[in-house]
């Protein structure tokens, strides 16, 4: 308890307080800073870069949640059935989730390389592109690329949670639907999805929180570039602090970042409780 209080709670409070002070490099070294009220917030909220970072964070996060959930559910629908080697394959997929992000990010950079990457080689082989496409060198494709790389590592995690939930759907429900003449798609739409609802909400909230705080994958793949196209809020805060030495405005950004998971955590705990009650 004490350890957590010292290493987590104290830095967090300290950081929030910094947001209300005038803190540059000089103040960090010498200590002591002037209280400036909400001036830092006013400064940040008046800056286009800040809103751009917040917006990119939301696009990145929602994109990652959608792709992870759809991918995870597809994997779960396949791997919930019994067949030879299923458990081994399920475990192998988890590798993507536990691999260090520095490994995953660099491998994806290599796969997406414009000149010699495997993706472009495949696309050229299929005749879909003619020359080199630099996926990480253009704003839109770069954002999509980091979303795909993130979802690649998150989806097996979603799969495990969703498989457990799928196993809990009573077989009699499917039987009843089949007797009523439901097609496979209708069974999925009207039996599977509603039955998975509570777990789906949990999974989406968790992935949202994970994705929103992602720093390493993006930093390693694009450094927030090109031209700030993937500069999400965590990268923005880091850049403010370690490149521009503006610790106060960085603290504003992290304080805003704190609010999003805080609000979602409340929803998350509530959904957990509902799940237990049901």
């Amino acid at each position: 308890m004490l350890f957590v209080a010292v290493t987590v709670v104290y830095p967090l409070i300290y950081s929030v307080l910094q947001a209300f002070q005038d803190v540059g490099l000089r103040e960090v070294i010498r200590g002591g800073a002037e209280w400036v009220g909400f001036a830092n917030f006013a400064d940040q909220f008046g800056r286009a870069e800040f809103w751009q970072a917040l917006w990119l964070s939301l696009v990145y996060t929602i994109g990652t949640v959608a792709l992870t959930y759809v991918g995870g559910l597809a994997l779960a629908m396949l791997f919930v059935h019994r067949f030879a080697g299923r458990n081994v394959m399920r475990a192998l997929l988890m590798l993507a989730w536990i691999l260090p992000t520095v490994v995953g990010a660099n491998v994806w950079r290599w796969l997406l390389d414009g000149s010699y990457g495997l993706l472009n080689a495949t696309l050229r082989g299929l005749g879909l592109i003619a020359g080199d496409v630099f996926w990480l060198g253009q704003p839109g494709p770069a954002l999509v690329s980091v979303i795909v790389a993130t979802a690649w590592s998150f989806a097996p995690f979603a799969m495990i949670l969703l498989v457990a939930a799928l196993q809990g759907v009573p077989a009699t429900l499917y039987e009843a639907a089949r007797i009523d003449g439901a097609t496979t798609w209708q069974q999925f739409r009207h039996v599977t999805l509603p039955a998975l609802r509570p777990v789906s909400i949990t999974v989406m909230l968790l992935i949202f929180i994970f994705a929103f705080k992602t720093f390493d994958t993006i930093y390693l793949m694009t450094r927030g570039g090109p031209g700030g196209a993937t500069l999400t809020l965590p990268l923005y805060a880091f850049q403010e602090a370690f490149e521009f030495r503006r610790y106060d405005t960085a603290a504003v950004a992290t304080t805003v970042m704190l609010f999003v998971p805080l609000v979602l955590s409340v929803f998350y705990f509530r959904s957990l409780r509902n799940e237990e009650a049901a």
Binding site: P11, L12, K213, F215, A237, T254, M257, P261, Y268
Partner: peptide, 11 residues
Amino acid sequence: MIPAVNLALPM
């Protein structure tokens, strides 16, 4: 659920 950046900067 706290972003690592939130801890790294004040730390």
